[in-house]
Every structure is written in structure tokens, then in C-alpha cells.
Design a protein around this nucleic acid. Sequence first.
DNA 1: CGACGGATTGATCGTGCTCAAATCATGTGG
DNA 2: CCACATGATTTGAGCACGATCAATCCGTCG
Lengths: 228, 228
Amino acid sequence: MLNQSLRTPATAAPIDPSCYSAEQFFVTTGHAGLIASEFSYKKEEEIYGEDEPSEYVYQVVSGAVRSYKLLSDGRRQIGAFYLPGDVFGLESGPTHRLTAEAIVDTTVRLIKRRSLEQAAATDINIARGLWSMTAGELRHAEDHMLLLGRKNAMERVANFLLEMDRRLAVAGMMALPMCRRDIGDYLGLTLETVSRALSQLQSKGILGFSGARQIELRNRAQLRNLDA
Amino acid sequence: MLNQSLRTPATAAPIDPSCYSAEQFFVTTGHAGLIASEFSYKKEEEIYGEDEPSEYVYQVVSGAVRSYKLLSDGRRQIGAFYLPGDVFGLESGPTHRLTAEAIVDTTVRLIKRRSLEQAAATDINIARGLWSMTAGELRHAEDHMLLLGRKNAMERVANFLLEMDRRLAVAGMMALPMCRRDIGDYLGLTLETVSRALSQLQSKGILGFSGARQIELRNRAQLRNLDA
DNA sequence: CGACGGATTGATCGTGCTCAAATCATGTGG
DNA sequence: CCACATGATTTGAGCACGATCAATCCGTCG
């Protein structure tokens, strides 16, 4: 299965370093002569743990990944989902700040972090790319803090649907890789609250199901209204 | 008033780029021949607005700054407080993602963002510093997402007190620059809930007040227990 | 001293959580 | 191919935590 966001352009497009897209990062590293290998993880398998040394940077080829923090009593906050094309596991410091797990069977490309750092020391484009990707994660985290701190349940779920629609919709349909509990732990809600919000959106005709994880958005404008 | 975290070491300490501290960044830029000027803002004055072009990078000399996002109906999420020594307003993209305001009369040092970018193009230490500071903000945001998504009111307030204790305690006392509403908007709570939690901690002898914003922590261990 | 904004405290309300049960989807073995 | 087992999802009922609304109280500054 070839993923659209991973295709290498036949003609190397010029890269504006101030508008860096994570999806193109592994293309740039290729230009710099860095070697990316592939690896696969089974559903539910851990890719790296919180506070482990950061050895590799990853790009999702196929599948999906969740990245989270745990409290001692088991409460979990998912910080981000990574979908095909997304880069994750990039750290500026020595260790990973969150745990990463495959949500479904997942294949990744990976590059040794050390070789990236070395490349960045001489290639300003690589250095810019590392910074830009971290800045992109920060932007997402800032938006998510607003959601977690100040939005109500329906606003959170509407926001989630629009985010997933943007990132993985094909022909107007989304195939969510994650369960209701994952969605709840991403949105700071319980799985029941997520389920109730989705049911309510269905009854209003804003979305349609074909299986609990196959969702079609029927009214994105109204969904954007619900997202505060 | 000389702030401790701003003092320039008499002997230039070697800087480990993987453990970059934001406080030393303006020292490094000085070595690179970059010029920092000073500017002052009145209490409640806006320093920059959300989505405005990012022209400068700032370091708090004295005072305090809040950085936040607003929803259309006025709900506010404060992403971070910046205290003397802290660097803020650093963006990888073209615009600021949050609004920054002086909480009290505040003096900052500032460097043109353009000159920083130019310096980073030739000086890998500068480039490393920019990345590390953004990564530091991301780390804070990741911790804060866990707090906002999964911690209860007392855990949030305990966490806040320990954070402020670490960052601005002098002789065991904190002089908070921000009001209860600011604290609430930082923690995803109302000002009343913050006030009740603080009163409860006082009645347990875990902290003592000398004025609503002058707090002495009397039992940090117990506070750490309350912070999940 | 008085006025004003900030903080505390109280009473009530409501959203989202908890606990529980029913239903649905998926995959496995007979 | 069907029966069953298992986990995921939905739905319901009741509850609790933090929000809201409201009334003092306090500290600071004119």
C-alpha cells in the first residue's frame, strides 16, 4: 500500500525552511545521504518508553501510533496520534518525554538520532528541519492545552473529528484506527462521554457511521461551529 | 534589582548544547555579537498578539508575563508564565501562536528574530539553542496537557505551587505576580476553585499566607503527594 | 478614611464521571 | 458456515466535582 504523503516527488521541489512540513523531512534527510531503515510493530506494541534514551527518529509508513504520559494510578493523557507521513520520537534532550505505542500493526522508517544531529551540525537545512518539527509539535500542544483546559465535551469531540478528517479522510470517509478509550484519553474525557457525543452528532445528521470507526462527516460547517 | 538568573558569569562557562538552559541563551547570543536592547511594559500591557508577525525574541529582566489563547466567547487558556531569566516569544514559523502580556510592570531584553536566524545559519551553537528552547517549551506543554486533561483541582494547584516555588522562591517565600483568575486560567479552573484549594492547604498547615500572594510552603513533601 | 479591585466563602446547579447492563462487531474453532 | 467467545461500543441511572451566582471580607491606593 503506497501512502500518498510518503511519495517522493519526481522533481525535487524546493523546500522553504520556514514552512517545513514534517512529511518531507525524510526526503530531505535522503538528500543529505542519511540512511533510513524500516521496522514493524504489532498492534499494542511499545515503540519506546517515557524517559528512555532517545536513539531514533521515526516516520509512520503505515498504521498509527499513540504517544502518552501516565500517572501512577493509571490515568493516561495521550498527547498526539501519529498517522502515515507523520514524524515522531524527535527529541532535543537525551530522553523521550512520552511513551509511544502502535495502535494497530504499524510500519515505520527510522533514522539514528546521532546521525541526524551530525548532519545538522553541517547542514543548516537539517538543523532548521529539526527545529521546525519540534515547533510544529509545540503548536499542536498549545492548541491542545486550550482544548483540554477550556472546551466542553462536544467542542472537544467536534475538534477531534475535524482534525482526523483533515489528516486521514479518504473520499469523505474516515477510518479511525483508535478505540473510544484512546479518543477519550486524548480529549481528557471518558470513553462513555465520547460515545455519547458521537451518538448525538449522528442523531443530528452531522455524521454517519458505517461501523463504529468508519465515520463520514456530513456537515463540516456545523461541526466547526460546535468547536467553539 | 539584579536578578540572579541574569548575571553573566565572570568566567564563560562551557555550554553543553544538549542541556541548554534558556536563561543562558542571551549570554550565548552576546558571544555571537548580537545586540540585545531593553524595553519596558506597563502592567497589563500587551507585548505581542496572537497571529502577529514574530519580530523579536524576548527575555524577562524583571516583572512577569502571561502567554495565552482566547476563544471567541472570552474563555482563556494561559499556556505559560514567564519570570525573570525566561525567554519567550521565540517562534520557528512566521507568527506568534499566543498573545503575551505583562502581568506587572515588566522590563525585557529583546533581540531581532532576523538577526538570530542569521546567526543560527553560521553558528551551530545558536541553532542548537533555538531548537533546545523550543523543545523546552514543548516539554512544559506536554506536562501541562497531562495536568489539564487528567488531574483534579487539588493536584493542579499543588503542581502550580511546586512549579512557582522552584521558579521564584526566595528564602522559602513566593511572591506571586499573578491574580487568582490568572492561576485559574493557567490550570483550567475557576478562580474560586483555586482560592478554595489554597484555603484548604492553609488549614492543613501545608502553606502559610502573608498577604494573598505571599505564600510560604511549609511541607513540600506533602504537596508533592497531592500532585498525583 | 473611603473606594475599588481582588480574594474568600457560601449555596446551588449542571456537566461529565462512575457504575452497570445491553448491544454490536470481530474473529475463532467446531 | 455457523455458534460462540471476546472485546468494543452504546445506553441508562445516579452521583460528585467543580462551575456558577452571590455575598462578604480584605488590602491597597487615592
